[in-house]
Write a protein that binds this DNA or RNA. Structure first.
Lengths: 252, 252
DNA sequence: CGCACCGTTGAGTTACATCAACCGTGGTGG
DNA sequence: CCACCACGGTTGATGTAACTCAACGGTGCG
């Protein structure tokens, strides 16, 4: 198992849950002040470096919590090494399943990550006492289920080009949600993934990902900068390459 | 929207929740007798014929409930018609998401289906009053999430042969769970799916599904009977064709 | 400097899709 | 009653999207 590096958790460690920047985004949004205090009493922070494993498939995990910053990737690996990424967790998302002692995937930090964690038993105890918490978790997991199913459609039925476009749109859409005006302009995306990792998410080889990005560049839709960055030159065109109709669901 | 055919719901309509055969399998297992009474007060039954649509992607759905018998398939369809099945719901599984008014997939009965349903608002009201209910839903949706992610690995990384073997193993495993002795013997599976539907589940064309079944037959592992039935001749061999290690997770 | 890592691109291969023919079965209506 | 057709399944021939193998360039680091 993993022992957390306690570094870099400074600013969070001092903060009260009441003023937590992720409160509105996370399951804590479903609690009142007194309930929040109870959560605060059992929380702890953990930080992870990029590529650091948070837990492994099959591990008994005595730990759940909210991602305060950074991105966590969940992956499954076959005995012969074939790898499939099955979820990306971002700020405010909840990692781990209450009432389940075993995991069935690996959780890896894709960027520097800070988690606000709880040990499972005391958390489950609070879960039984605080009704809103259960609702929050249920809503989050419904959303994750939706996202997983959207991804199943991608993996099972989309072409390589559609897959890559869909991948980029996830990040672009998020940015547009924050600054709607960006939709008309060129928009720079910073993605924490190598070509190989994108391939693991999309069910493609890294070469195919690279080729499709080059093709989208040739068509004037995006401009990858050779590193981890991509500039979206034409959001609407990119969207139309995903194979989805209009501005479909993803995250509700 | 769909108006339910009330036929065939007879035996269920009379039954009390207390003696319901699906009680132990469903979220009702998490309720006490008094709470069960409250649920019973707002329940209603619906029956569906094979291939009948229960609801469609994008519909506002005012209805959630437990599958009492039969199988329900959830599918997603792209604008050009490409189809991906994203879940199979069976006895005891819960259909629909409390707190979500919109669906993002189609639900279709694959066999004759009887549902024990609730209108969303009164159900959500009870959900807030009965803590166990939320726990049940959370556990079920965690399981579904696990299954969805297992399926993502299949769709993204498995070969056609592994996909078909994995598909068969789902049904075989279920039967083995009921009668462990069957594992050593030939075991007949009755599946409610055509080749095309299997293909939609596996992200394959119907021809490829057919060819892989023929190949598995040539190898003496299974014996499809030309209709919807398949006899598993060698469970261990079939398992080893799935690409998974040993007897992996699927449903916990 | 040399090496490890990431990305790109090309050439050749392959697994699966597509297109198409054919068979058996069950339902239907003339 | 049986001719017909719709439907599901199998199999073959062919095409192609994506994988694999391989070479090469840039960048950062010890």
């Amino acid at each position: 198992m993993v022992t957390a590096t306690a570094r870099n958790s400074g600013c969070h460690a001092q903060a009260s849950c009441l003023t937590c920047s992720e409160r509105s985004r996370s399951i804590c949004a479903y609690t009142g002040p007194e309930e929040l205090r109870q959560l605060e009493a059992i929380r702890f922070f953990r930080s992870y470096e990029p590529r650091q494993t948070i837990f492994m498939d099959g591990d008994p995990v005595d730990f759940v919590g909210t991602v305060l910053s950074g991105m966590v990737s969940l992956t499954k690996i076959m005995p012969d090494g074939r790898t499939q990424m099955v979820a990306m967790l971002r700020q405010g998302n909840f990692l781990g399943h209450p009432y389940r002692a075993q995991t069935s995937y690996n959780a890896v930090a894709s960027t520097p990550v800070v988690m606000c964690g709880f040990r499972r038993e005391p958390f489950e105890k609070l879960l039984r006492k605080i009704p809103g918490l259960g609702q929050g978790l249920l809503e989050q997991s419904s959303k994750e289920l939706d996202a997983a199913r959207e991804w199943m459609l991608l993996l099972g039925r989309k072409t390589a080009r559609e897959k890559v476009a869909s991948f980029l749109i996830i990040f672009a859409r998020e940015k547009v949600a924050q600054h709607p005006s960006l939709m008309q302009k060129r928009m720079h995306l910073d993605m924490p993934y190598t070509r190989a990792e994108m391939g693991d998410y999309l069910g493609l080889s890294l070469e195919t990902v690279s080729r499709q990005l080059s093709a989208l560049k040739n068509d004037g839709i995006v401009d990858p900068d050779g590193k981890r960055g991509v500039t979206v030159l034409n959001y609407a065109a990119l969207l139309s390459e995903t194979g989805d109709d209009a501005d479909g669901g993803w995250l509700a």
